[in-house]
């Protein structure tokens, strides 16, 4: 057992010695990673249970009381994770998710890259403008859907102004369904691009660290 521990220490030492080119930097802090995976899990619960509540699958006989509980519990968890991320962003003064006007000017170039009209993406900060737009829209739509969800959960007892604003329960349900479709359309895109564009970013969402490549020699 002792020898095994020693062996492990040796490997770590080797790694620390700088076995890779470039610099190892902290790319995703712990709270961001906790938020990411926690939110991903709870959002999956919300979307799947919501779709089942919307249109029961013929092959899936399930207790609807339980499905509703899963939906509500997942929603509360997701709201908790969002609150965590927002608090973390405020404390760290992290603005990496907020799209800036100067970044929006780069959006056509980014689009051209994705459409194979450019060989390289435009320079970006931590997240490119496409990511910023999608992530901020997720945050916004999730908060809207949560508010609508709470309104339907309270059955018009509270948040009556919202009920009136949207024009009734049926329209409220319709808006939530369309938000679900938006999530279902953009999440696969996010997974696809994160797996094919830069694997080290994906790795950083697990370990927190990623390699910053050395400056190219001219």
């Amino acid at each position: 057992m002792k020898k095994k521990k020693e062996l492990r220490k040796t490997i770590f030492k080797e790694l620390q010695r700088g076995n890779v080119e470039g610099e190892i930097i902290l790319f995703q802090p712990l709270w961001v990673r906790i938020f990411h995976w926690g939110f991903a899990l709870s959002l999956t619960g919300i979307l799947l249970s919501g779709l089942e509540l919307h249109k029961p699958a013929k092959f899936f006989a399930v207790s609807y009381g339980d499905m509703f509980k899963i939906h509500v519990i997942s929603s509360w968890f997701a709201l908790g994770f969002v609150a965590l991320r927002c608090t973390d962003a405020i404390l760290r003064r992290d603005q990496s998710l907020i799209p800036k006007l100067r970044d929006i000017k780069l959006f056509p170039k980014l689009l051209a890259y994705y459409l194979f009209l450019r060989s390289a993406p435009p320079p970006n900060r931590k997240y490119n403008i496409g990511q910023r737009l999608v992530y901020s829209s997720w945050l916004l739509l999730f908060l809207i859907a949560s508010l609508l969800g709470l309104s339907s959960y309270w059955q018009g007892e509270h948040l009556i102004w919202l009920w009136r604003l949207v024009g009734g329960f049926q329209r409220l349900r319709w808006i939530k369904f369309m938000i679900t479709i938006y999530f279902l359309a953009t999440i696969p895109l996010h997974i696809y691009l994160s797996m094919t564009e830069n694997l080290s970013h994906l790795q950083a969402m697990v370990s927190g660290y990623e390699r910053k490549p050395p400056p190219e020699k001219s």
Partner: peptide, 20 residues
């Protein structure tokens, strides 16, 4: 190209000590 760029090959292989 992206996979090659975003993954890294070590400068040298890890030298493991044969314990037993």
């Amino acid at each position: 190209r992206n996979l090659l760029k975003s993954t890294v090959r070590g400068k040298h292989r890890l030298s493991l000590i044969k314990v037993k």
